[in-house]
C-alpha cells in the first residue's frame, strides 16, 4: 500500500449526498479478479451514456477534473454495498482523498485499507471546499495527514480528526495483517479457551 502523507491536487466537486457504492462502481463491473483496472468504470452510470460515449456533463469528464486527486461530496458518502471495488475504482482513477460531512462505516474502513484518506468536515466547510473545487486547476487543495489539516487555495487551514492508529498505518503504508500476526500467541490462547468452553463452535 502506498503511504499517504501530503497530497496537493485538483479537487472535483460532486455536490451530492448519499453517493452509494453502486454509483461509484455498478455491480456489472465487479467481475474482475484483480484489484486494478476499475478506474475506467468509476461512476460509469454517470460518466458514460447508453451508447458508451462520454457524458460531457459529468464532472470527471471535464478538464481539469480528469486529473482530480481529491473528491468533495456531501453526506453519507459510500453508503450501500460493502464492495471494496469502490475504493479500488477511486484509487485506479487517481483519487486518494474524499472529503465529505460523513461516510458510511464500511466504505470508510475500506478507504484506509487502500491508502485513501476519507476526511470528515462539517457541511458548511464542505460547501466552501466545493466552491474552491469549482475553480478547477487554479485552485489546488492540500491535504496534509501529518499535520491533520486541509489547506484551501486561499491558504486557510482547516484541521480535521482522524483515528491515530489508522493515521499511523496510512502514513507508513502498513498492511495490518502483518501487525495482527504479531499477536498470534494471543489468538492461539483464545482458541484454546474457546475449544474448552464453547465446543459446539468447532467444525461440524
Amino acid at each position: 500500500m502506498q503511504p499517504f502523507t501530503t497530497l496537493t491536487g485538483i479537487a472535483a466537486p460532486l455536490p451530492r449526498a448519499n453517493v452509494d457504492t453502486d454509483q461509484i462502481i455498478p455491480a456489472r463491473f465487479l467481475k474482475s479478479i484483480s484489484r486494478s483496472g476499475f478506474g475506467k468504470n468509476l461512476f460509469a452510470n454517470f460518466r458514460y451514456r447508453e451508447d458508451g460515449s462520454e457524458n460531457p456533463d459529468f464532472v470527471l469528464n471535464q478538464e481539469p477534473y480528469r486529473r482530480a486527486e481529491i473528491l468533495i461530496a456531501f453526506e453519507n458518502f459510500g453508503c450501500g454495498s460493502s464492495r471494496e471495488h469502490a475504493p479500488w475504482a477511486l484509487l485506479d482513477f487517481g483519487i486518494r482523498c474524499v472529503i465529505a460531512p460523513d461516510f458510511a462505516d464500511i466504505f470508510h474502513n475500506n478507504c484506509f485499507k487502500n491508502g485513501i484518506l476519507p476526511v470528515r468536515l462539517p457541511r458548511e466547510v464542505c460547501e466552501r471546499l466545493m466552491e474552491d473545487a469549482r475553480l478547477g486547476g487554479n485552485a489546488r487543495i492540500t491535504v496534509d495527514l501529518e499535520r491533520q489539516v486541509v489547506v484551501r487555495p486561499n491558504g486557510e487551514e482547516i484541521p480535521f480528526q482522524v483515528d491515530p492508529l489508522r493515521r499511523h498505518l496510512l502514513l507508513n503504508g502498513l498492511d495490518d495483517i502483518g501487525q495482527t500476526l504479531q499477536h498470534a500467541a494471543a489468538i492461539d490462547a483464545y482458541e484454546a479457551r474457546q475449544r474448552a468452553t464453547q465446543p459446539w463452535l468447532a467444525a461440524r
Binding site: S82, R83, E84, I106, K113, N114, I177, T180, E191
Partner: peptide
C-alpha cells in the same frame, strides 16, 4: 457483503466487511 447483518436475527454479532478485511480474517481469524 454488507447484508451479513441478516445473521443478527439469531442473536449473533454479524456484519459486512471489505475485501482487505476478508483477507485479514482468512489469515488471522480476527
Amino acid at each position: 457483503d454488507s447484508h451479513t447483518s441478516t445473521h443478527g436475527a439469531l442473536g449473533a454479532l454479524a456484519f459486512g466487511i471489505g475485501t482487505s478485511e476478508v483477507e485479514h480474517v482468512l489469515a488471522t481469524q480476527t
